[in-house]
Design a protein around this nucleic acid. Structure first.
Lengths: 343, 343
DNA sequence: TTTTAGCACTCGTTGAGTAAGAGTGCTAAT
DNA sequence: ATTAGCACTCTTACTCAACGAGTGCTAAAA
C-alpha cells in the first residue's frame, strides 16, 4: 500500500495522538497539535482516503478517527520512530541486574518487578531454562529407595534441581558412576549436543552402564522439559487497569482469565522466535482471548543459547515504540546478566 | 446484647437473604420467604429495633435493610448454622489429595486449584514450611568454592532445598562431618527442639566442629525462615469478580493491589493462631486494604506441628457458613495428606 | 398489649425530551 | 489543490416527571 507523504503524516498523527489520549482524533486536533501546514478541511479529505484504505475508522459519524488494527500495523512497520528509555530508567534496570543473585528465579522476579514499575502493561516472562545451557555438572542425591534429587549445574554456575523418582532400584554407587560419566564426557555440552553419535562412543567404552545412562538421560531430559513448561512469571496486573480500555469489567475478567489460566501466555512465549522483537497486534494473535490486545515479545539468551522469552501485553492502543524499546533493552540486559557467571 | 427469638429470626433472615441476593432486604420479602407467621408491619417494627441496636442499616430511606458488620458478627457468633459441603465436593477434594504428590508444592497447587473451583472467593495459602517438621536428614552438596546446596528432608519424606553461600571456605570433608552430626544427633527432632541444652552435649563430644555446627544451624534456620516468608500461593482471582461488590473498578483495583503486593495476605496467614477457624469481618481486619472484606482462615499441620495456614477472602457479604465449612474441611484433609508420608 | 391494615412520604430509578457540543462531509469560493 | 462556511449527525449532559419500592406512623383490630 502506497501512501503519499502527507497521508503518512496524518496517519502517524492519528495513531500517536490516540495512543496518548485514548480518544478519537479530530481533524482540528491534528491541525492544531501537529504542524502539517494545512487546514482541518484538507486533513479531513486525507482522513476520508485513509478510512477508505481501511487504516483508520470512525466510531460514529460525529466522532474523530481512531486507527484500525491495520493502521497500527502500518504505523509499526513504516512510520514509527525508535523509542528511547530515559537514562534514569536504563540505570535503574541495569542496577537491578548488577546485584548479586543467588538463583535464577531471583533475577527473573527482580526483572518483573522493575519492569512493572516502568510500564502500565502486563509483564510476563518464561524461563530461564537450562535446557539449552551448557552442562557443567550433574549430581544425583539419593534420598530414599526409589527417590532422589537431581541437581544440574550449568557452565556459568546456574543451578536447577528437582525431585525425581527412580523407576528401578539403583544404588548410590551406581548413581555416582552415572555422575562420573556425565561429568567426564558431557561437560561443556548443551543437552541437544549430546547426540546419538557421542552417546555411541560412550557406550562402547562403558557398555556396562548403558541402561543406566539411558535412564539418566531420559530423566534429565524430562526434568528440563517439565521445568520449562512450568516456569511462567507475571507482573503488572495492577498497573494495566490504569488503561482506559479496562474500565469495563468484562475486559478485566478476560484479562484475569488469561493470568490465572497461564497456558495462552506460555504458548505465546514458547512460539516467540529468536529473531529480534515480535509484535502481534490484536487479531494477529492466534488466541481468541488476546485478540483485542497487542503483545510485544523477544527471546533472551544465556551464553548464546536461547533460554527464555519476555513479553509485554497491553491494549491494541499500546505505545509500541516504548514497549519495543523496553523489551529490547530488557532482553539484552537480561541476556548479558545471565551469561555472566551465576556465582 | 440480648435479642428475643423473633428479632433473631428477622436478623437471620436479613443476613441470609442479603448474602444470597446482594440486595437490601425488605420486610415484605422476609414475610414472604421466611415464614415467621407475622405481617410485614410487625417485621418492620422489629427491624427498626435491630437498626437502633446497630445490627442492620438502611442504604437510603426507601430501601430495605442490609446487615451491618456488627450484624454479621452477631450472625456468625450466634445464629449461623453449620454449613455442609456436598458429598460430591468432599470426594473431589479428597481425591485430589489421594493422588501421589512428588513435592510439597504440587499438593499446595492442587489444593488452590480445586478450592477455586468450588468457591467464588480468593483462595490463599502459606507454607507448608518444614520449620516445625521433624528432621530426618540434612545434606550439603558442594557446588563451587563458597557455594553449596542444602537439602533438608523431613521425617515423613518431604524435601526442601535451597542454594546457600558459605561465608568461609569449607571442604567437602567438613560438610560431611556436619551432615553426620545432624543425622546422628538431631534426627527426629523439630528445629525448635534443637535447644541450646542439646547443642551443649553435642559440643562436648565434638568440640572441634563447634564453629562449623553453629554456622550450619544458622544457615539452616535462615533457609527455613526465608522459605516460609516467601511461600504464598493464590487462586480464584477470576472468580471473585463474579461477586457484585466487584462491579466497581476501584474495588477490583484494591483487590489486585492485594494480590500483587502479597505482604498483607502473608501477614494475615502468619498471624492466624492454630485454634480452629478464625473469622475476621470487615473492619475487624487490621489492614486498611481489607477492611471491606472478610477473611476466614485456619492453620494446617504436619504430624501435629503447624506448618502453614489457609484462607478465603471475600466481600463482607460472604457466605460464612460455607466458607467456614470449606476452610475446615480443607485444612483437615490437607493436614492428614501431609502427615501421611511424602514418598 | 400486641399485631396489622392503610396511607402518606421519601428516595432512587427510568425514560423522554432538549440543548449543547464536537466533528464530519459537501459545496462553493479562493 | 486548498479552504472557509455551513448543514447535518450523533453523542453527552441535563432536566423533569412518572413510577415503584419500601418505610414509618397512626389508628383500628385482635
Amino acid at each position: 500500500m502506497k501512501l503519499n507523504q502527507r497521508k503518512q503524516k496524518v496517519l502517524e498523527a492519528v495513531v500517536e495522538d490516540h495512543i496518548a489520549t485514548a480518544e478519537p482524533v479530530s481533524s482540528r486536533t491534528i491541525a492544531r497539535k501537529y504542524q502539517l501546514g494545512v487546514s482541518p478541511a484538507t486533513i479531513r479529505n486525507e482522513m476520508a482516503d485513509l478510512e477508505e484504505a481501511g487504516l483508520i475508522e470512525q466510531p460514529h459519524t460525529s466522532a474523530g478517527r481512531i486507527p484500525s488494527q491495520k493502521g497500527y500495523r502500518y504505523y509499526v512497520d513504516r512510520l514509527m520512530r525508535k523509542g528511547h528509555l530515559t537514562d534514569r530508567e536504563k540505570s535503574t534496570i541495569t542496577s537491578i541486574f548488577a546485584q548479586q543473585a543467588r538463583e535464577l528465579v531471583d533475577i527473573v522476579q527482580r526483572t518483573i518487578k522493575i519492569v512493572s514499575q516502568c510500564t502500565d502493561y502486563l509483564v510476563f516472562l518464561s524461563g530461564p531454562q537450562l535446557e539449552n545451557a551448557a552442562l557443567h555438572k550433574v549430581r544425583f542425591i539419593s534420598l530414599a529407595p526409589g527417590k532422589a534429587m537431581l541437581v544440574i549445574v550449568s557452565e556459568n554456575g546456574w543451578v536447577e534441581n528437582k525431585l525425581i523418582d527412580l523407576p528401578v532400584a539403583v544404588s548410590q554407587e551406581e548413581l555416582e558412576q552415572v555422575e562420573r560419566v556425565f561429568n567426564n564426557y558431557f561437560r561443556g555440552l548443551t543437552f541437544p549436543q549430546i547426540t546419538r553419535a557421542i552417546l555411541k562412543s560412550v557406550y562402547d567404552e562403558l557398555s556396562r552402564q548403558r541402561l543406566l545412562i539411558d535412564l539418566a538421560l531420559d530423566i534429565i531430559e524430562s526434568v528440563l522439559k517439565r521445568e520449562s513448561e512450568d516456569a511462567l512469571y507475571l507482573g503488572g496486573t495492577r498497573n494495566i487497569l490504569k488503561q482506559p480500555e479496562y474500565r469495563d469489567i468484562q475486559q478485566v475478567r478476560k484479562l484475569l482469565d488469561l493470568i490465572e489460566e497461564q497456558s495462552v501466555l506460555r504458548t505465546i512465549l514458547a512460539e516467540t522466535q529468536n529473531i529480534g522483537i515480535t509484535v502481534r497486534i490484536g487479531r494477529e494473535n492466534k488466541f481468541d482471548q488476546v485478540q483485542n490486545c497487542s503483545v510485544v515479545t523477544a527471546t533472551y539468551a544465556m551464553g548464546g543459547n536461547t533460554v527464555g522469552a519476555f513479553g509485554l501485553l497491553g491494549p491494541v492502543r499500546m505505545n509500541y515504540a516504548r514497549a519495543i524499546a523496553l523489551v529490547e533493552f530488557i532482553t539484552q540486559t537480561l541476556s548479558s546478566a545471565l551469561t555472566r557467571s551465576g556465582f
